[in-house]
């Protein structure tokens, strides 16, 4: 395994600060904002973005977590995966109706996770709007999905793996591109 770092801890902070600033500028009424992180690493990122918005506006947006396992398209009748993903918590402390949801995830790749997240959210209510914020966009979209706020665009090949490590879950901070030696 051969890995190359593309973003360090400072890089991550700067990216999130910029995204939070763009969000605040574009949302209009920050009281409508509601950050929902996609399990698992989207959740700490959502919390960080919410804190940054709170620092900037004085208003603390609610933060939720979303587990999309039950809506994935690779474990239905066209199952590709060989085991069911472990279910994690979905916590939406506030109703999503009429809110501007900011869906947060660490990596945007094929777009299928986002599609599943949208379907999951829709079964919880009717938000006013849903925006998508991702730390890394690695390309190779398979569905017509685009992020509204992107930390860094990192072109990759399909053989590569993007590893986002956050201190909340992994002990270290950084983004790496990893590749199997010999590929």
């Amino acid at each position: 395994m051969h890995r190359v770092q593309v973003l360090d801890a400072r890089g991550i902070s700067r990216a999130l600060e910029r995204m939070a600033a763009e969000l605040v500028e574009q949302v209009g009424d920050e009281k409508l904002l509601y950050f929902v992180g996609v399990q698992t690493r989207g959740v700490p990122l959502a919390r960080r973005l919410a804190n940054l918005v709170a620092d900037a506006t004085g208003h603390e947006p609610p933060v939720g977590a979303l587990d999309i396992s039950l809506y994935r398209d690779d474990v239905g009748p066209w199952r590709a995966a060989h085991q069911q993903p472990i279910l994690r918590d979905t916590e939406l402390p506030v109703a999503i109706d009429k809110k501007v949801i900011c869906l947060v995830d660490d990596v945007l790749y094929t777009g299928r996770t986002v599609r599943a997240a949208l379907d999951t959210l829709m079964d919880y209510g009717r938000p006013q709007a849903i925006r998508l914020a991702v730390l890394i966009d690695r390309g190779h979209r398979e569905l017509p999905v685009a992020a509204d706020y992107v930390g860094r665009v990192v072109p990759t090949s399909r053989a590569e793996d993007v590893q986002v490590h956050l201190k909340e879950s992994d002990g270290e901070e950084g983004v790496w591109i990893a590749k199997e030696v010999g590929k």
């Binding site: 396992s69 809506y71 239905g76 009748p77 279910l87 994690r88 979905t90 079964d123």
Partner: peptide, 19 residues
Amino acid sequence: QMRDIAARPIKKVPALRGK
């Protein structure tokens, strides 16, 4: 985890759709 589905407004998920 499955208990929470009963608490949702839509008490249904597509996980076993088509089965």
